[in-house]
Amino acid sequence: MNRTPWRRRREPLDHAELTGLLPPPGDPVLSHGRLTTLEEHLMNEIQQAQSQKAAEPQPQPVILFPAPPPARPRRAGRRLALVGAAVAVAVLAGVAGAVQFAGQGTGDVAGPPEGAVPASIVQVAQGTTEGLTRTVDRISGAAAREELPKPRPGQFLYIKSQVSWLERSENVDTGESRTYVQKLHPRQVWMSPDGRKGWLIEPGNGNTSAAGLTLDDDQEEPARPSIGAPSYDYLKTLTTDPDELLKKIYKETEGQGNGPDQQAFTTIGDLVMEQVMPAELASALYRAAAKIPGVVVVDDTTDAVGRHGIAIARTDETSGDRTEWIFDPKTFSYLGERTVQMRDAEGIKAGTVTGHTAITERAVVDAMRELPGGRSRV
Score class of each variant (00 low, 15 high):
184 L>D: 07
186 P>F: 04
186 P>L: 04
186 P>T: 04
186 P>N: 08
188 Q>I: 12
189 V>G: 03
190 W>E: 05
191 M>F: 00
191 M>T: 00
191 M>Y: 00
191 M>E: 10
191 M>D: 12
192 S>H: 02
193 P>T: 02
194 D>Y: 02
194 D>M: 00
194 D>V: 04
195 G>I: 02
196 R>A: 11
198 G>F: 00
198 G>Q: 06
198 G>S: 11
201 I>W: 01
201 I>C: 13
202 E>G: 04
202 E>N: 12
206 G>Q: 09
206 G>N: 07
208 T>G: 03
209 S>N: 12
210 A>K: 13
210 A>R: 13
212 G>R: 07
212 G>T: 09
212 G>P: 06
213 L>V: 09
216 D>A: 11
217 D>A: 06
217 D>K: 03
217 D>M: 05
218 D>L: 14
219 Q>R: 14
221 E>V: 13
221 E>N: 13
223 A>Q: 14
224 R>G: 05
224 R>P: 10
225 P>R: 07
225 P>K: 07
226 S>H: 08
226 S>I: 01
227 I>F: 06
227 I>H: 00
227 I>W: 00
228 G>S: 15
229 A>Q: 15
229 A>H: 14
230 P>Q: 10
230 P>E: 11
231 S>V: 11
231 S>A: 12
231 S>K: 03
232 Y>T: 12
233 D>E: 15
235 L>H: 11
236 K>I: 09
237 T>D: 12
240 T>D: 12
240 T>K: 10
240 T>Y: 03
240 T>V: 13
240 T>S: 13
242 P>E: 10
242 P>K: 07
243 D>W: 01
245 L>R: 04
246 L>P: 02
247 K>L: 09
248 K>N: 12
250 Y>D: 10
250 Y>P: 04
252 E>D: 15
252 E>I: 03
253 T>S: 13
253 T>R: 13
254 E>I: 03
254 E>V: 06
256 Q>N: 08
256 Q>I: 01
257 G>F: 00
258 N>H: 05
259 G>D: 06
259 G>E: 05
261 D>T: 01
261 D>P: 00
262 Q>L: 07
264 A>F: 06
265 F>K: 01
265 F>S: 05
267 T>I: 12
267 T>G: 05
270 D>N: 15
271 L>H: 07
271 L>F: 03
272 V>Y: 09
272 V>Q: 06
272 V>C: 09
272 V>M: 10
272 V>F: 05
273 M>I: 03
274 E>M: 09
275 Q>T: 12
275 Q>P: 00
276 V>E: 02
277 M>A: 10
277 M>C: 05
278 P>V: 04
278 P>Q: 05
278 P>C: 08
279 A>E: 09
280 E>G: 10
281 L>R: 09
282 A>M: 13
282 A>P: 01
283 S>L: 09
284 A>T: 06
285 L>K: 01
286 Y>F: 15
286 Y>G: 02
289 A>T: 08
291 K>C: 04
293 P>A: 09
296 V>N: 03
297 V>G: 02
297 V>K: 14
297 V>D: 01
299 D>V: 00
299 D>Y: 01
